[in-house]
Design a protein around this nucleic acid. Structure first.
Lengths: 333, 333
DNA sequence: CTGTTAGCGCCTTCAT
DNA sequence: ATGAAGGCGCTAACAG
């Protein structure tokens, strides 16, 4: 609302160049004038227009962050870390909620050039698919430094989360507590969810299991109840893995409704190590895919590219190893 | 990456003024030249620099959104609605995570003038206190259109959520199922949490209850267990209200641990109508404070001020009435 | 150490 | 219907 650099210059009796210098510390200014200028800035409650500076410098120190939804807690945990990291470096991270459509993504991504974003981060494997669908987005992406949490696309740097192995470990854990009839419940489709499922299947095979299945379902209470009723799932299986914690909650609710005990009759495992899994009763054993680490890695790598001013020599593909967190839903204490 | 308005003008053989006109539809341009210009824009894959435009227009169509943490699901539900609303209007909402310190808030709020934000929204009653702490922030806030979800400060428009009444209703509900020894568990301090507590207390009085208490506690599993052990809470009370759903989960976990049945022995009520409350077993009766409505109202009001170009005549103070959602934790089906 | 100047890309009178 | 020109607030040579 403000005073501009001109006001400061006039009031302090110096040129705008000098003012600019004391603002940015970009060159030697005598202590005396520096002090004078600073005083005037205080008096007039001046703060430089980042948008004018941005026009000149072709950067507003913004990084664009794309998420499918603000309501996805796991993704927000990642976003939180990224934001913390960059806000310390005086960057603003601007979050865009894209939904799951190509159009939504494309519309949001237009901002990256309209606003001269310095970098971009995509959260979630779903973007891997979406980004590859359109030439336009692919081109856009390779025009600025980009990292993807849990995914990779040509021209970007990806953080890979080995959820395949995570699910294998989950299977092994179930076998270790004598469960040999396993059911896998898969939620919405995505590369991540495919990887998890593959880990489940291969894990079962490696363990020599003979009775295991996977079902694609909505993670919604009514649907799940019906599913369990119709297929009599509760009595057929003694171990269930869900690809997300919230679905595990729904499953447990369903099992209780049927009078089935967890974990005595059926053991249950979820994924994400969310508050759902730790706070629910029983606590849910879960595959911790370390969203915080994903966020930190994304931020570090992107910042490295940014400050190096160029692409990294080799395509770093950090791999994060999930970890099984064991809770009551699989332990007969 | 970018072609500029100059490139387009040159390539199309017109002046930049004309190009500007077709971009903004701001004046009559002959169909012919319009077509020509548009074609060139397509060919060169041009998109106007919002930052240059922003410098000229003194607005980048940005609204600043302040949240204490991205990890607060309830707040993000509000943010989600706000974002949806404004993105349709071609505004970007820039989210700032401020923590709970004055410094964090002040630092973030500097952006509102540095970046010439068009408006600001604060999510959560905690900001009411923080904002009033400093003259600087108070002044800042009254310099641009501002709304607050669940709070109010001089110079802003507030959305008021009647959580006081919400909690009274919760008490009444417990009484209606014959609970007369009530315990209230209070989490982190805030105006909102104070209002809720007041509602609980007054509700108990109105109902003529004689045994009721409230305790301030951390909502963490270990702390809660210790608290229940030391004070023997589980046997003293037959109804418990928590000021947030996640704490209700912790309480239920604790009760189960002690072999106490919910709701037969102790009924439990939470607040927020979060996924926690609907997905947990038992489902938790909860005070729905309608975050979605809060978000929508914030957005609508702010947008109204923005488009009217001036402050609204009267200080609107929309009031949102919470609604009790009854689930298994209070119903002996 | 300090001032002058030329843009950054766009919008907007003011002429034509 | 179109063009010319000034300016938004700031930075970065280039002079001095």
């Amino acid at each position: 609302m403000g005073s501009t650099i001109n006001d400061i210059a006039r009031e302090a009796g110096v040129s705008i160049a000098t003012v600019s210098r004391v603002i940015n510390g970009s060159a030697q200014v005598s202590e005396e004038t520096k002090k004078k200028v600073k005083k005037v800035m205080e008096m007039l409650n001046y703060s430089p227009s980042l948008i004018a500076r941005g026009l000149k410098l072709k950067s507003m120190k913004n990084i664009a962050l794309f998420v499918s939804s603000f309501l996805n807690v796991n993704h927000m945990r990642i976003a939180h870390e990224i934001n913390s990291h960059f806000s310390k470096l005086d960057y603003d991270v601007v979050m865009y909620e894209t939904g799951n459509s190509t159009e939504g993504l494309a519309r949001a991504m237009k901002r990256i050039i309209e606003k001269g974003m310095d970098g971009a981060i995509f959260i979630g494997s779903s973007f891997q698919v979406l980004l590859e669908k359109s030439e336009e987005t692919k081109k856009l992406i390779s025009s600025i430094p980009t990292t993807i949490a849990n995914g990779w696309v040509e021209g970007t740097y990806g953080i890979f989360v080995d959820e395949y192995k995570g699910m294998k470990d989950a299977v092994k854990h179930l076998v270790s507590i004598n469960r040999r009839r396993l059911l896998y419940l898969k939620g919405t489709d995505s590369i991540s969810s495919d990887n998890k499922l593959a880990g489940f299947i291969d894990g079962c095979k490696e363990e020599g299991l003979e009775e295991f299945t996977h079902i694609r379902s909505e993670n919604d209470i009514e649907t799940t109840r019906r599913l369990f009723d119709e297929r009599n799932l509760a009595s057929k299986y003694d171990g269930i893995i869900c690809d997300e914690d919230n679905y595990a909650l729904v499953v447990i609710k369903t099992l209780k409704h049927l009078g089935v005990r967890v974990p005595e009759d059926v053991a249950v495992i979820g994924c994400n190590n969310s508050d759902f899994s730790s706070l629910s009763s029983p606590g849910i054993t879960t595959v911790n895919n370390k969203p915080e680490d994903q966020g930190i890695e994304c931020a570090i790598i992107l910042n490295e590219i940014l400050s190096k001013g160029s692409r990294l020599e080799k395509k770093i593909l950090i791999t994060i190893e999930p970890e099984l967190v064991i809770r009551e839903s699989t332990s007969l204490s």
